[in-house]
Amino acid sequence: MPEHYIPIFIFAVLAAAFPAITLIIFQYIRPAMRAVGAKLEPYECGIPPEGDARGRYSVRFYIVAILFVIFDVEVIFLFPWAVQYGVLGLYGLVTMFVFLGILLIGYVWLYRSGALEWIYE
């Protein structure tokens, strides 16, 4: 039903345009940026920052990202199953138990291997 999305599309345009236009309009109304020197530096409690902020970051964040991809896809699989659950009945339950069971095994492995710990000793 693509026509359902027409209002949403228009709304999206509105929602994006409203803040952007306000931002641009007020750029001309408010005093011009006169910041110089330290005001333009990134805030680091009054001390010139050391090094660039965009360095390599801890690998744990990437692990979380990977785990997210895995688990969120599972959740997305669950959505259509949940919608059709009334039709699928017992068959649906059993299949989903198998599915979730596999997921749980993976989860337990992750848990035990420590991938879910934020601080590794």
Binding site: P42, D52, A53, R54, V64, A65, F68, V75
Partner: peptide, 23 residues
């Protein structure tokens, strides 16, 4: 984009947090 340590730390925390609780 801010190129500030505090901002980057906050952003990364936010990403990891939202992503984890999304599930």
């Amino acid at each position: 984009s801010s190129n500030s340590h505090y901002a980057l730390l906050g952003a990364l925390r936010s990403a990891a947090q939202v992503v984890s609780y999304e599930v």
